[in-house]
């Protein structure tokens, strides 16, 4: 059965890395989905919510709910944005009507790898990439959505790819939204610790979140590292 998927590109994906979003579309289509994109979408509201500005976040979250409430499934190439949508009911805890609508959307919002593996039961997408790839567990995907095995299973099915774990395990990359610019030195110390877990032979550092990748790529580039940061979707779309 063809699943119809409403794509949430995420504001970062839309504006900074359209190629990641295109890869997401390609992967979903290869998995047999019919993908739609509603250009009325913008952002999940997380930046304002995490900064404490709940009224400002609510206005954006309402717009999100209006765009996506008629979808069968909402899929985003991000654990963090998906986790934010899952928090909508809490955000609207004092508004029963919106709370109910938010709950309905939250129930059908999925992070890409979780959607592929848990909802579609797809693991092998016929991708090919010869590279040694280190996996970064994005915090919200890992701890709020329980995404751990799904991306690893998808990556192990990629021909030519060697998956390795970071020595620094599940630690945070130090991004944390505005945290990264409110406390730049602290954020960078966390980042450097995370990256210290890469071994010398890693070619690619990957994750399900463009935000973590922005943080890690920014540092790798600054240091002139040969390690490339690639979103999971880009790897899965490689042929």
């Amino acid at each position: 059965m063809t699943r119809s998927v409403a794509l949430f590109a995420t504001c970062l994906g839309d504006q900074l890395w359209p190629e990641v979003v295109e890869a997401t579309v390609a992967v979903l289509e290869r998995a047999g989905c019919r993908v739609t994109f509603d250009p009325a979408q913008t952002c999940c509201a997380q930046p304002a919510f995490n900064s404490g500005y709940h009224d400002e976040a609510k206005a954006v979250a309402r717009a999100f709910v209006e765009v996506f409430e008629r979808a069968d499934a909402v899929v985003a190439p991000s654990g963090s944005c998906t986790a934010m949508v899952h928090r909508y009911p809490e955000l609207f805890r004092d508004e029963p009507d919106w709370r109910a609508r938010a709950e309905a959307v939250a129930h059908k919002a999925f992070e890409l790898s979780a959607f592929l593996v848990r909802e579609l039961g797809v693991v092998d997408l016929g991708a090919r990439l010869s590279a040694r790839v280190a996996w970064h567990d994005a915090c919200h995907a890992l701890r709020e959505l329980g995404v751990h095995d799904e991306p690893r299973r998808l990556l192990r099915a990629v021909a030519g790819l060697e998956l390795v774990e970071l020595r620094t395990g599940e630690s945070c990359c130090g991004f944390g939204g505005t945290f990264a610019v409110k406390f730049p030195e602290l954020s960078t110390a966390m980042l450097d610790h995370k990256l210290s877990g890469l071994d010398d032979r890693v070619d690619v550092l990957s994750a399900v979140d463009s935000s973590c990748l922005m943080q890690m790529r920014g540092r790798l580039q600054r240091q002139g590292s040969r390690v490339r940061a690639m979103h999971l979707a880009e790897i899965l779309a490689s042929r």
């Binding site: 994906g13 359209p18 190629e19 990264a180 610019v181 790529r217 920014g218 540092r219």
Partner: peptide, 15 residues
């Protein structure tokens, strides 16, 4: 941001 990291660029054309 740029004190320690390269900044990303907005894509020429958004998705």
């Amino acid at each position: 941001w740029q004190s320690s990291r390269e900044a990303p660029k907005l894509a020429a054309r958004p998705f």
